[in-house]
Amino acid sequence: MSLLEVRDLTVEYSSGGYKVRPLSGFHLQMESRELGVLLGASGCGKSTLLSAIAGLLRPHSGSIRVGGTEVVGLGNRELTRYRQTSVGVVFQAFNLIPSLSARENVELICRTAGQSRTTARQRAEHLLELVDLADRMGHRPGAMSGGQQQRVAIARALALDPPVILADEPTAHLDYIQVEGVLKTLRELADAERTVLIATHDERLLPLADRVVELSPRVAPAATAVEHQHLDDGEVLFEQGEPGSLVYSVESGLIQLVRRRDDGSEEVLSEVTPGGYFGELAPMFGLPRSATARATGPSVVTGLPLTHFRSHMRKTAHGA
């Protein structure tokens, strides 16, 4: 049984009135002792995945199991206990409480879980010693370097000895000297009973990883042939969110571009008439389709591979 198992995970949320789906059908399996690295550009869903595993975000569908226990569908109380005891999170900007000392930042987590003040304090001191901060326990975050703050954040994540440690861009705010200590510490966390998952776009972390998961937007294979398509009234040419490799020009009829709102309604963005073209952004930038294209009445469109579309545009420009 895997320590962390993510199956067919889809996360969807509203942004600016529209549905956004940063993760769709995602799979991941992590064993104990493993350190996994989620690699990808900004906006590809790394933090979303960590949020879902941390129990901060309810996924649209799919399964997240930690130690065999299903996390998706837990009630609020169980989810609170899950966050306390089953996952430890190291945040990108450290996110330490500025008014608390290093020791208190760690102690707070233990006491929130019901430990006595003495036990919590001993635990905090022990963990801070492990991250080589024995001499900085009484300092507030503002009086510590970025590397030291990140090590306090690691100690805080370990406070209740969770089996899963999640780290979001742990090296983003550190210089190269500080990075070394933090990476060493993170590597050591992955032990017989613990797995560590790091989201980053810092490739310096790759040599540390037992498993690398690249999170990139789904890009359609580049098309090479021109396609002519006859569409009936109401027939959908492509759906919002799909990958796309063709740019379409309208030969006859009318194509409506509509965007789905998060309340289920549709917004008509534009109507493309013969001679017009649409759908160029998805193949150009490797993005999913941002709208659905649907025929209004019998229509004929021509799908152009990106190379054909560019030469067509050049010719049009010279002709003009």
Partner: peptide, 16 residues
């Protein structure tokens, strides 16, 4: 690095 409350230490399981 065990926590002091022994009953909280079911590694690999959901700790509630």
């Amino acid at each position: 690095v065990p926590v002091s409350t022994a009953d909280a230490l079911h590694k690999g399981g959901l700790r509630v």
